[in-house]
């Protein structure tokens, strides 16, 4: 009895929070998505699938998100893994904490300010000018998918590095000695021991970054300049600019559904890869 009470007490704050801040708004959004737009903007109650039928008009935003979010996740992983590996396996333990803090330092300033910096770097006066000066011809970087990807990888790298680092750091180094002892050269040891055992960290990192990227709007807004836009940008536009709440709600519901499907698939895949380990979970 006592135990049950304490269980409820433990869950109560988060439960109330989620009910009020998540479930309730989600219900509103769901209801809105079947409604109609008022002429002056806003919402008129109705029950119609019209908004969902209109989804293809925002096809570009869906397509961009569904290509650039996974691609950005993959790129972050490819850059983060070697870095995390270095930090966990090679870096002098004396410097390790210091280096880890350096990885997180970018978080100390707002992503907004950092994205402004990237606008200058990728803009006409920045890298392109340098490239032209070096004689490689005229290139455009800002407002391209490349610019958006750069911003994404830059912004989300720490989120990928940390979980991968944790899983590599926790790896029992004696396993690598055992691997070598059994005749596996270093590369084989990495492929057969380190990599599989770091998969949980990789899974966590990818999950974190991917989920956040699917809802991203700031980086495409600043570095994509209205040319490369995500679903997030479409939502900002629909809710705040054109005040088409019903259609916006339909787009939002669709995004949530896509996330549910991809995340479920992903978790299933990770469980398979992890060889049905009990502790596969997230880390």
């Amino acid at each position: 009895m006592q135990r049950r009470l304490s269980t409820w007490l433990l869950l109560a704050p988060a439960g109330v929070w989620f009910a009020v801040m998540l479930v309730l708004p989600l219900c509103f959004v769901l209801v809105f998505s079947f409604g109609e737009r008022e002429a002056a903007g806003g919402y008129v109650p109705a029950f119609t699938l019209e908004q969902y039928a209109n989804l293809p008009t925002r096809g570009k935003a869906f397509l961009n998100t569904l290509i650039l979010a996974p691609l950005g996740t993959l790129l972050s992983l490819l850059i983060a893994y070697p870095l995390a590996y270095f930090l966990a396996m090679r870096a002098n333990p004396k410097w390790r904490t210091m280096l880890l803090i350096l990885v997180i330092v970018p978080f100390w300033t707002s992503i907004l300010i950092r994205s402004y910096a990237w606008i200058f770097i990728l803009g006409g006066q920045g890298l392109p000018a340098l490239i032209e000066w070096l004689g490689f011809g005229e290139v455009r970087l800002i407002n391209t998918p490349f610019a958006v990807l750069t911003g994404i990888v830059y912004g989300y790298l720490p989120l990928m590095v940390l979980p991968v680092y944790v899983s590599l750091e926790r790896l029992d180094k004696r396993l690598l000695e055992a691997s070598a002892d059994l005749g596996a050269p270093p590369l084989q040891g990495f492929l057969q021991v380190t990599l599989p055992l770091s998969l949980p960290g990789v899974a966590t990192g990818c999950m974190l970054v991917f989920i956040l990227l699917m809802g991203e709007f700031l980086i495409p807004a600043m570095l994509g300049g209205g040319k490369v836009f995500f679903i997030g940008n479409a939502l900002v536009d629909l809710f705040l600019q054109s005040r088409n709440w019903a259609f916006g709600a339909a787009v939002a519901v669709t995004l949530v559904l896509i996330m549910l499907v991809t995340d479920t698939l992903y978790m299933w895949l990770m469980r398979r890869l992890g060889g049905a380990r009990e502790d596969v979970s997230l880390m």
Binding site: D172, R174, L175, E177, A178, S179, A180, D181, L182, G183, A184, P185, P186, G189, V193, P196, L197, G274, G275, R277
Partner: peptide, 20 residues
């Protein structure tokens, strides 16, 4: 000669079995 080229095997104190 590195460990992986030696025809020698070891039983480790804490076994170091591969958990995966």
């Amino acid at each position: 000669v590195p460990a992986y080229r030696r025809p020698v095997n070891m039983v480790f104190q804490h076994y170091a079995l591969f958990p995966h």
